[in-house]
Simulated assay, not measured.
Amino acid sequence: MTSRVLITAGASGVGRAMAEAFDAAGAQVWVADIDVDALVECPSDWKQSLLDVSDETAVSSTFKEVEAAWGGLDVLCANAGVAGPTAAVEDVPLTDWRSCLSVNLEGAFLCSKYAAPIMKRQRSGAILITSSTAGQYGYPNRAPYAAAKWGMVGLGKTLAMELGPHGIRCNVICPGSVEGPRMEGVLQREAVAKGMTRDQVYNGYASGTSMGRFVEGRDIANMAVFLASDAARLVSGQVIAVDGHTVNPDPKL
């Protein structure tokens, strides 16, 4: 793979796994992240930008920098996201609602907005949006996050229709519960909200899948590399869960 790949939130977690997988596949990698310390830890041969995806000026500047350096862009992984609050809907402050949608949904929109003209000029490209299984099911006590992730599914399907005539594909990846620090925070907050222990919540999520386990960043990364490749050249407008098959998104123990 000789693709030029930009990954938002690419310096850690799922994004870092994506960057490593694309790098291993022979792609040129550019990671954009808001975490300075995580960027410092990235390999020196990866290009990088400090980026807040909710800041349109910063997003525009980053894509101009990418096009100037590379002359184009083959793959955008719109992967940046935040977990948002865990609370009953009546207890969610409007500021928290807006912050969650701004990073998740608006961030994916802004990155797609500025990637599209670059890809249109070359009449090729692939946009991969990282949503969540929360974009396929209702998730109690996670209203802002679920709303944002459902919106990202709609955005991805619309982009596939709008950009397909220009040779650009768009697909949405919906991870399930991913092992790592971000999910750990969700588990702790949900345990408090439900009056359960952290392990009870963890086991509840795992038992809500037919395979009985959480997924890992590499599972998401492998799907991203496939969807960006020529092997998926006619795969577009799809919403693909990588979740161990969710059968009950809110199991009660």
Rank of each mutant, 00 (worst) to 15 (best):
P85W: 02
T86M: 05
A88Y: 07
A88G: 12
V89S: 15
V89H: 11
V92Q: 08
V92Y: 08
P93M: 07
P93F: 06
L94Y: 11
L94I: 12
L94R: 13
R98K: 13
S99T: 08
V103L: 09
V103D: 06
V103C: 08
L105W: 01
L105H: 04
E106H: 11
A108E: 02
C111N: 12
K113S: 05
Y114N: 08
Y114K: 12
A115C: 11
M119R: 13
M119K: 13
R121K: 15
Q122L: 09
R123L: 09
A126G: 01
A126E: 10
I127R: 06
I129H: 00
T130H: 07
S131V: 00
S132E: 04
S132N: 05
S132L: 05
T133F: 07
T133C: 10
A134V: 08
P140L: 09
R142G: 00
A143L: 07
A143N: 08
P144T: 03
A146W: 02
A146Q: 11
A148F: 01
K149G: 03
M152N: 03
V153Y: 07
G154Y: 04
L155K: 02
A160G: 05
M161G: 09
M161N: 12
E162D: 15
L163G: 04
L163I: 00
H166K: 11
G167T: 02
G167R: 13
R169E: 08
V172W: 02
V172D: 01
G176I: 03
S177C: 02
V178R: 07
P181A: 15
R182K: 10
R182G: 05
G185L: 13
G185N: 14
V186H: 08
V186G: 01
L187V: 14
L187H: 10
Q188H: 13
Q188S: 13
E190R: 15
E190P: 01
E190V: 05
A193H: 10
G195S: 06
G195M: 08
M196W: 14
T197V: 02
R198D: 14
V201I: 15
V201F: 04
Y202A: 10
Y202F: 13
Y202W: 13
N203V: 00
N203Y: 09
G204V: 00
G208Y: 06
T209F: 10
T209Q: 11
S210E: 12
S210C: 09
M211G: 00
M211K: 12
G212F: 10
R213H: 14
F214P: 03
F214I: 09
M223I: 00
M223V: 04
V225P: 10
